[in-house]
Amino acid sequence: MQIIINGEKRTINDDTTIAGLLKELKIDSQRVAVELNMSIIDKADYSRTILKDSDKLEIVSFIGGGASWTIN
């Protein structure tokens, strides 16, 4: 089945969970927030949220910048 991750189509196996997908993509769940069909999913639900065909997923990086960016 196909889902859309950050605007791009991707084929995944049936019964893939968010946790499984992140593992497949080699993304540490600590580093991102995951949004499924316009809602942010609680981290505790990653392993029990099974993706469905045509789901739209956004994997949002954790960013912290703002003021001074001193490049050493």
Binding site: R31, I40, D42
Partner: peptide, 26 residues
């Protein structure tokens, strides 16, 4: 913290060398 419960572990945050930003984004 509902969005990001804890700071990202050390090593997962971009290094200082990677920290650029297009000024107007600010």
């Amino acid at each position: 913290r509902c969005l990001y419960p804890e700071p990202p572990p050390a090593g997962l945050v971009p290094s200082c060398q990677e920290a650029g930003v297009l000024g107007v984004i600010a």
